[in-house]
């Protein structure tokens, strides 16, 4: 059973099409990252899946249940973007209220445990009107998981949080995955997505322009490879021929004392380069291949 399956999901406001026919599948137990610039349609897409807004056309299913089925709401947790909490309620009251609404009323001990997981246990009795932005964000995550859902939607879960809290939340997301939960998250923090997500989709102007695991994305975008080699001194008699070979093998060649940096077009060139060094009786101390980061891929798109 797929955790999420969408078919040609579209959303228009008047003549403006925000989401332009997205079809994707998320397997159970995945942490799926949804990336895109501001206005790409990430939140609109999440809002359609979570029932906040209605799709203009297309269909979707969550945990095998047809989109819009109220039964599915029991098994999903949502931290929506741009949602306010009730200022007059305490953190504890929020969790009790929302868990009861989800059909699984949580005991005080369970609420405390979840508050502890997001780092809000010391503020359980504080009204959210007095909460900072970061604290509200954490409570937003807490209410999304209070009823132990199978599928969790997190829209920008760590934006606006301090570094320590970000690590805290990232740990929590990993823990949820270990417990078999599926997480669908959007984020502007590319490092976070790269670190956490098992699969990623990059959205541009309402369309998915690339999706897959980090390795698949790298493979799709690996047009060039940057290689850095630390080596022993090159014998004077071999210097000219080796330099010539390297210039032909790649581009952006930089030669420093005992170190070269070069851009090559395939992995095969790296092994050829190592053989060339060995033939010239040059010892190789370290080879560092710089993989394209998600940031590189994202910017290239």
């Amino acid at each position: 059973m797929k955790a999420i399956e969408t078919k040609q999901l579209r959303k228009s406001y008047g003549k403006t099409e925000i989401v332009k026919g997205i079809s994707l599948t998320v397997e159970q137990g995945e942490i799926f990252g949804f990336l895109g610039r501001n206005g790409a349609g990430k939140s609109t897409f999440i809002n359609m899946l979570t029932g906040i807004i209605h799709p203009t056309s297309g269909s979707f299913s969550l945990l095998g249940m047809e989109g819009g089925d109220n039964m599915a709401k029991k098994y999903i947790g949502v931290m929506p973007d741009y949602a306010n909490l009730y200022g007059s309620l305490t953190a504890m009251a929020h969790l009790k209220y929302f868990s009861a609404l989800s059909g699984k009323p949580a005991a005080k001990a369970v609420c405390m445990e979840v508050l502890q997981q997001v780092g809000l246990d010391e503020h359980y009795n504080k009204k959210t009107a007095k909460f900072s932005f970061g604290m509200k964000k954490k409570l937003g995550i807490a209410q999304a998981i209070i009823h132990d859902p199978e599928l969790v939607f997190l829209d920008e879960p760590t934006s606006g949080l301090d570094a320590e809290s970000v690590l805290h939340i990232q740990r929590l997301i990993r823990d949820l995955q270990k417990r078999g939960k599926t997480i669908f998250m959007t984020s502007h923090n590319l490092n976070e997505v790269e670190k956490l997500c098992t699969r990623i989709a990059i959205l541009k102007e309402g369309r998915i322009v690339q999706s897959g695991s980090m390795d698949e994305l790298r493979a799709a975008f690996r047009s060039t490879i940057n290689v850095n080699i630390k080596h022993s001194p090159i014998p004077a008699s071999q210097q000219e021929s080796l330099h010539q070979w390297l210039e032909e093998a790649g581009s952006n060649l930089e030669l420093n004392d005992g170190e070269i940096t070069i851009t090559v077009e395939s992995e095969q060139k790296i092994s050829e380069m190592i053989r060339a060094f060995q033939q010239c009786r040059v010892e190789i101390y370290r080879v560092h291949v710089k993989e394209p980061s998600l940031e590189d891929i994202f910017l290239e798109l």
């Binding site: 709401k73 949502v78 929506p80 949602a83 609404l101």
Partner: peptide
């Protein structure tokens, strides 16, 4: 927008 919490739960 507190309704966003409600409509995602019931």
């Amino acid at each position: 927008r507190t309704i966003r919490f409600l409509v995602t739960k019931t």
